[in-house]
Design a protein around this nucleic acid. Structure first.
Lengths: 162, 162
DNA sequence: ATGGGTGCAAATGCTTTGCAAGTAC
DNA sequence: GTACTTGCAAAGCATTTGCACCCAT
């Protein structure tokens, strides 16, 4: 059923796939071609995908899969922390690869919808310290800043600051 | 339960209400009793409320209002940055007051659902610098950490770090 | 007076689920 | 062979919208 374009998976993709197979086996679950295809499609992309985009991309690639299976697989991948979900303020949830990916934040422009992704180690460190201080054991995070990108900035910032 | 019967609105609530009236007038919109009631109900609470909780609380308080109006009013309040929305990983969106409230992050326990709120000025500062560096003009932010609270921590952290 | 507002109910649209048939192990 | 999976279609639900009546300004 699986006939994707020949392009070799990245190292990260392979590692994520290994993780997936291991965790699935541990849980007595099966690594079907559909599930692997979903994982690979997400790791092939460098942006956020919503469930439907994922479904369409897989279809176009010739992978026969249903929306139901896409959603179900996303749940599994989320459980194993191989993908992360993000609410970018649109009406649907977005997903992106999580394995071997540094924590990062999203700056979402309310004018043009552009999403800038930035990772900043010092912020990650601070957050981790904060968690430790509170006895909280973090598994994933989502950080979104909504506002205006450089093109649409008005020169009148309004983020509440106290 | 909440002893919120006829206690007078806090200073913050009054200021937020003033803001609301001003911005509404600017836009040629009307400050109906329903809209003010929604604003007050949100500012009366110190936690996240979803639209339906808000609707029920208002009903219980004797405010005749429809869900449609609740949603519509939330849109207005969001537009004016008087409330903020947060996706806590549940199925519905949560709202909380935003005026005069310091930016804060949420630690959501995947075991018990408890939400710890923490504000940390140094993180806020860092984020602001990061925005400046990228020419991004922030208006609001949401920051969620998902994991296990101190009661449910397993001693086996898995947040991806690379 | 009058243009915006409200609320009901129906419509949306993303996501979940029941179930029969298919399939990985 | 036995669960686990798949996919269709139907169901669920939070949220949005159309429309007739209502009211703040």
């Amino acid at each position: 059923m699986n006939m994707e374009k020949k392009e070799k998976p990245s190292k990260i993709t392979r590692l994520a796939e290994d993780q997936f197979r291991t965790r699935m086996k541990e849980d007595g679950l099966r690594c079907t071609s559909e599930r692997i295809a979903v994982l690979q499609e997400i790791y092939r992309s460098d942006t956020h995908l919503d469930a439907d985009e994922l479904f369409v991309k897989l279809k176009n690639r010739g992978v026969g899969i249903s929306r139901a299976t896409v959603y179900h697989t996303l749940d599994l991948l989320l459980k194993f922390h191989l993908v992360s979900r993000t609410d970018l303020g649109h009406k649907h949830t977005h997903y992106e690869k999580a394995y071997g990916v540094e924590n990062h934040l999203h700056m979402v422009c309310s004018e043009c919808g552009k999403v800038i992704e930035i990772s900043d180690p010092s912020i990650s460190d601070m957050l981790e310290n904060l968690c430790r201080k509170n006895g909280f054991e973090p598994e994933s995070l989502t950080l979104q800043l909504f506002g205006k990108c450089s093109v649409h900035a008005s020169g009148d910032p309004v983020m509440s600051k106290k």
